[in-house]
Design a protein around this nucleic acid. Structure first.
Lengths: 366, 366
DNA sequence: CTGTTAGCGCATTCAC
DNA sequence: GTGAATGCGCTAACAG
């Protein structure tokens, strides 16, 4: 039997209440007594039973998730995953609320973060937009001792506790490496379609992609980055224009959303050599395009894993306990048409695509 | 507040003990009473608090992990992950014991399974060898109402509750798809190095690989499969001989272990065109070879994830509760030199490679 | 400053 | 067949 609070009380010659006080670092204990207890804890190797503690506390964890609104398959899937977590709330002792803010909008995000702080939750998860104002707002949360986890897109320079997302520089490097090898002997420049340089994940992917293309495949020039604002219509126009201007394009790297537009442009393209296409995020649309051979590879992050990880980490931070580091590393999935997972929409998991309002131009769509 | 046993007792007009009896499907309750209680449960939407139940029971889960012994980096890493789980035992209320048996040895495995059954644990996890005798032994465990999870290599046709491992057919298909595209215009046959056709995972990978190579890249003939018994020395001899016999080899797919031998053979090979090499399992050796450009891609399964998943599933089966399906799907990791994770040996995770005794020929080495 | 006591939600003796 | 009482390990009033 592992030692309990009673054992340490006996060993230290004090009462349960005193033990509890030093265990939970509450005031009102003489230093001598405290040390006596701490030594007893150390000596008998006590580890607290978190389940029992939570039971006694009837602990619930109020968390706030701040996500971009808009018509973006990936983000809507992410939201669905958060809703799934809400469904598990009774079991996991969480009370999660979702706040959506217009994508790429610094002021709205700052306002949401400050509102979250006012609600003093046990933790906040946020898809960050990279900006000094957002950093400041996150740091205000931390100053209020509220744990913060960035989700999908990180916020370097802030005091956030953890980032639940993939290594986006590595993602960009991987995209370049696949692109270069898939192109093999073929020549021609490569186009890059991004959403916005305002978000860290897109910037990181671009950086990684550029680095490896320049190092290892210098024969393929990179065309100027197309910023599609994750808007399918805009993306389609931009890509279509690029195809028209440079018919010899050999590859396209789509590092943001708006892939519906990219796919439409690819379908419309009749002439020219085949293009190698690498995109991000497995959605209904990219999955279909992968199967049709329009897209060669999809790099994906598992939104469900990210959400569950964010919750685990927020809980751990709220309790001040350690996490299994390896379990919280979000892996970059590489999908070819050959290793597509069975469609997850049917049973235990959530659909890749949710119904959503059409708000053109404002979301990180698809 | 979510409803408790008290609420359902009140709603049904019975006592706590009776509620408990129907909750845990114990005998000694009149059918009328039982139905009354069940309706109350349904009506107020009761869900049992597993943590509280475990606390009351002082429940511990005795689990047995059966792993192949021998000098195999991946398997030793897996064992290290199980040991890490043992380290978390006090927190997770598990009591895990590890049993190792010689690799590819049906009789030894059957004996271990039967011994495990005699110990009547709360669950068994086993790296299966595909054989009717093993299936029978697993089914005996299930007949004794002991949950069984297969780990890494599955056992089709058995009554095992769950498989904690990757989709190996998809893995083989993916390997072929990468191989074909990486080879681009180059011609020449492709060699396959396996461990043993006695294990399901190797057979599945081969099947997937063959299928896609034949469908999509018929220009590349497949040489007869080399069975290296996961033994580095044997693998090196076989691969070296294949290079000598067919200097025009364009690619090698190593779907088992023994990659140390493969890498040695690659280093020794001076002449001929460059070969595209795809291997399985990220170990110290494959990681180095990937960085050196000797290996082009490594397909990997995360042993830590598999072990943790196996434990979660065994617990759930023991408690008769559902699992989050998506969380328990083990992903196939594709590593290029560009998306290698930081070396995990240093901090939160475990080393890729453990020290181990040299037992040539009997392990699924490296 | 420290100790006593009564639960948290559930399982399990025991009586009735 | 059914119910009342006790405890799992911990926290939180409330007294002292």
């Amino acid at each position: 039997m592992r030692p309990t609070v009673h054992d340490i009380a006996a060993a230290a010659g004090v009462s349960l209440a005193t033990v509890d006080r030093v265990l939970n670092q509450r005031a009102g204990v003489r230093t001598v007594t405290r040390e006596k207890v701490e030594q007893a804890i150390e000596r008998i190797g006590y580890v607290r039973d978190v389940a029992a503690a939570n039971l006694a506390k009837s602990r619930v964890y109020p968390f706030i998730f701040i996500l971009p609104s808009g018509d973006n398959s990936f983000m809507r899937g992410l939201e669905a995953q958060v809703r799934a977590a809400i469904g598990r709330s009774p079991v996991e002792r969480t009370a999660i609320s979702i706040v959506t803010v217009p994508a790429f909008n610094v002021e709205a995000l700052v306002a949401a973060l400050d509102a979250a702080r006012a609600a003093s939750p046990a933790g906040v998860a946020v898809v960050a937009v990279d900006s000094p104002d957002v950093i400041a707002a996150v740091d205000r949360l931390r100053a209020a001792r509220i744990p913060v986890v960035t989700l999908v897109s990180d916020l370097a320079g802030s005091l956030r506790d953890h980032f639940a997302g993939v290594d986006n520089i590595a993602a960009g490097r991987t995209a370049a490496s696949l692109m270069g090898r898939f192109l093999g002997g073929r020549s021609g420049p490569v186009a890059v379609l991004a959403g916005s340089m305002l978000v860290r994940d897109h910037r990181d992917r671009l950086e990684g992609f550029r680095a490896v293309m320049n190092e290892s495949f210098p024969a393929h020039a990179l065309l100027p980055v197309l910023e599609g604002q994750d808007d399918p219509a805009l993306a389609e126009r931009l890509v279509g224009a690029a195809f028209a201007a440079s018919p010899e394009i050999a590859g396209v790297y789509s590092l943001g959303a708006g892939n519906r537009g990219l796919i439409a442009a690819l379908k419309r393209r009749q002439s020219g050599q085949p293009v190698c296409v690498i995109a991000h995020e497995l959605t209904q649309h990219t999955r279909a395009a992968l199967n049709d051979g329009l897209i060669d590879a999809v790099l994906n992050q598992d939104g469900g894993h990210e959400v569950r990880s964010a919750i685990r980490v927020l809980k751990a931070k709220a309790d001040g306990v350690a996490v299994i580091g390896a379990q919280e590393r979000i892996r970059l999935d590489i999908f070819l048409k050959d290793n597509l997972p069975f469609d997850e929409g049917s049973e235990t998991d959530l659909p890749f695509e949710q119904a959503g309002n059409q708000e053109p131009g404002q979301g990180r769509a698809d």
